[in-house]
Design a protein around this nucleic acid. Structure first.
Length: 221
DNA sequence: TTGTGTTTTACGACCTCC
DNA sequence: GGAGGTCGTAAAACACAA
């Protein structure tokens, strides 16, 4: 360990044992009036040390990282309750050998980290939900497409059948068909047999209230 | 070793609540 | 009006690739 490291190490121990000494050596603006807006840039602590008469080489202005044990303790406390009432702050400070201000600052920063993490988690959840919705939308779109195709096919089929029916009725007048060939059951409509076999088609020819093409189809489909 | 990005500690400004 | 909160940021400490 060189001199600088020894100094740093000693100062670290001192600052941990006597946090108030450490804290008081950091330039404070407490008591300063706060009329100010816009926000002032803080002085570099090394600059402040130099201005304050120090040479900045003794390292007192260095930021002190909390020990693992202190952090673990603070984390446990944070786990219990995110807010820090002053009694708890003082108790934690004395138990950990820290300045109450350090405990307060640690909680402030910890809350900020927790909030960031929560926002990140929330963002991830929303992103996943959005992806699922997009996938579902694609599925529904393709289903709609498929159903439209089916509908189109059905309409074409209806049209085809209607045209056949209309063609037959114009070429072969029902009256003559009925009067001349009243007892004839010859297949006359191609795929459709005309007769009294109970399929209902005979009604088309023998019904007194004859209806045409699409209307007819709509009754039987 | 050094440049660079990230994390941690600390603070100032401002806000809210009692 | 003071205490304690958030927010934004500085700067030290740290991690790590080149």
């Amino acid at each position: 360990m060189n001199n600088q490291n020894v100094n740093d190490h000693n100062l670290l121990i001192i600052s941990q044992m006597y946090p108030s000494v450490y804290t008081s050596s950091v330039p404070q603006q407490a008591g300063e009036s706060k009329p100010v807006r816009p926000r002032r840039r803080r002085k570099s602590k090394s600059v402040a040390a130099t201005e304050g008469g120090g040479d900045g080489s003794n390292g007192w202005f260095r930021k002190r990282k909390l020990s693992d044990e202190q952090v673990r303790f603070l984390e446990m406390s944070f786990g219990d309750e995110h807010k820090l009432e002053s009694e708890r702050k003082d108790r934690l400070a004395s138990e950990l050998g820290l300045d109450p201000r350090q405990v307060a600052v640690w909680f402030q920063n910890r809350r900020a980290r927790w909030k960031n993490k929560s926002l990140e988690d929330e963002y991830t959840k929303l992103k996943n939900a959005h992806e699922n919705v997009v996938v579902e939308k694609c599925r529904l779109d393709s289903e709609v497409l498929h159903l439209k195709e089916q509908l189109h096919d059905a309409e074409r089929e209806i049209q085809r059948l209607a045209q056949r029916v209309e063609g037959v009725s114009s070429n072969s007048p029902i009256s003559s068909c009925v009067s001349i060939e009243a007892n004839q059951t010859t297949p006359f409509f191609g795929d459709y047999e005309i007769g009294d076999d109970g399929d209902g088609y005979e009604n088309l020819l023998y019904s007194p209230d004859y209806i045409d093409g699409l209307e007819w189809m709509s009754q039987f489909m």
